[in-house]
């Protein structure tokens, strides 16, 4: 197990945060714009995709996941996979003829 014993404090510069923030705002702008165009079922797919990209940046930079140990990353994947199972397996029922 790669659990480091001592704390390495990563200092992230203000500038980086501002950069990420601008990116997030840009993505928000894109979502709002795209939602105005009717793309059928793609609309929600695109909206969710952009939301996932935004979350990725928030997780990695604002929440420092990028600088955490592997254990944390395994943890978060476990949690997300569990949620996807709960969501996906429910649709074994709903997305087929009942």
């Amino acid at each position: 197990m790669s659990e480091h014993q001592h704390e390495e404090s990563h200092v992230i510069e203000y500038g980086n945060y501002i950069f990420i923030w601008l990116g997030l705002l840009a993505f928000t702008g894109i979502t709002v714009t795209v939602s105005g165009i009717d793309l059928g079922n793609w609309t929600i797919a695109i909206a969710l995709f952009i939301a996932c990209v935004k979350s990725w940046y928030v997780l990695n930079y604002f929440m420092h996941m990028k600088y955490e140990d592997k254990v944390f990353k395994i943890f978060i994947v476990t949690a997300l996979v569990t949620f996807m199972i709960f969501l996906g397996f429910t649709f074994w029922d709903y997305s087929f003829v009942r």
């Binding site: 939602s35 939301a51 979350s55």
Partner: peptide, 25 residues
């Protein structure tokens, strides 16, 4: 750090709530 983590989670949830409720056009 932990309080900030909590706050980011609040932000994360909203990132999904916003398109799911406001942007169904």
């Amino acid at each position: 750090e932990n309080s900030a983590l909590y706050w980011h989670l609040v932000d994360l949830i909203w990132i999904f709530l916003f398109p799911l409720f406001y942007l169904i056009h």
